[in-house]
Amino acid sequence: MFIILLNYIKPIKAVEAVIPAHLDYLEHYYQQDKFVLSGRKNPRTGGVILCQASDKDEVWAIIAEDPFYLEQVADYDVLEFLPTKAAAVLTRYLV
């Protein structure tokens, strides 16, 4: 399991111009069962995506398709973790 942290590197107006394409990207990976949760940071400085992937290379390949990445409005940090405890609705993600 991976946490993808996005940090906006352009003004919010530039980010907002890419949001429709970014939402389509998110939906695609939710349909692929790769994304589990996502949302914006508060304050609005970026976002967070919880991603299930086989390894960091797969995560970076997924990130490479993000319109935020392609339009260079955000940079990314990827953290890997091994979930061992979860709420009942999330137990399928445990290792």
Rank of each mutant, 00 (worst) to 15 (best):
73 V>Q: 00
64 A>Y: 05
69 Y>C: 04
19 I>A: 02
18 V>G: 01
79 L>G: 13
6 L>I: 05
90 L>R: 14
80 E>F: 08
36 V>E: 01
58 E>V: 10
63 I>H: 00
64 A>M: 10
57 D>K: 15
47 G>P: 12
36 V>I: 14
62 I>T: 07
87 A>F: 14
30 Y>K: 05
53 A>I: 08
30 Y>D: 09
76 Y>P: 03
66 D>T: 01
58 E>N: 10
52 Q>G: 07
3 I>K: 02
92 R>G: 14
54 S>L: 15
61 A>R: 12
46 G>I: 11
40 R>I: 12
56 K>H: 14
75 D>Y: 12
23 L>K: 07
43 P>K: 06
15 V>G: 01
13 K>N: 10
53 A>Y: 03
9 I>F: 05
31 Q>V: 03
46 G>V: 09
89 V>T: 10
31 Q>H: 11
93 Y>H: 08
28 H>F: 10
52 Q>E: 15
29 Y>R: 03
9 I>D: 03
71 E>R: 04
76 Y>V: 07
24 D>M: 09
59 V>W: 01
80 E>Q: 09
71 E>I: 06
81 F>N: 11
85 K>I: 13
94 L>F: 03
62 I>M: 02
83 P>E: 05
33 D>M: 13
94 L>A: 04
75 D>V: 14
68 F>H: 00
66 D>I: 02
11 P>A: 01
76 Y>I: 03
24 D>E: 14
61 A>V: 09
65 E>W: 02
15 V>H: 00
40 R>H: 11
72 Q>A: 08
47 G>N: 05
1 M>C: 06
88 A>Y: 13
11 P>L: 01
29 Y>S: 04
3 I>G: 08
91 T>Y: 02
64 A>T: 11
32 Q>H: 11
25 Y>A: 00
46 G>W: 07
70 L>Q: 10
22 H>E: 00
18 V>D: 00
5 L>K: 14
94 L>Q: 07
93 Y>C: 06
26 L>E: 08
59 V>R: 00
76 Y>C: 01
12 I>Y: 11
19 I>E: 05
70 L>N: 08
61 A>Q: 11
66 D>H: 00
20 P>N: 02
41 K>V: 12
12 I>H: 05
10 K>H: 08
68 F>I: 09
51 C>V: 12
93 Y>K: 05
19 I>G: 04
92 R>F: 15
11 P>N: 01
87 A>Y: 15
68 F>T: 05
77 D>A: 15
27 E>W: 07
62 I>L: 03
59 V>Q: 02
17 A>R: 09
56 K>M: 12
75 D>F: 11
11 P>D: 06
79 L>I: 15
43 P>L: 06
82 L>T: 14
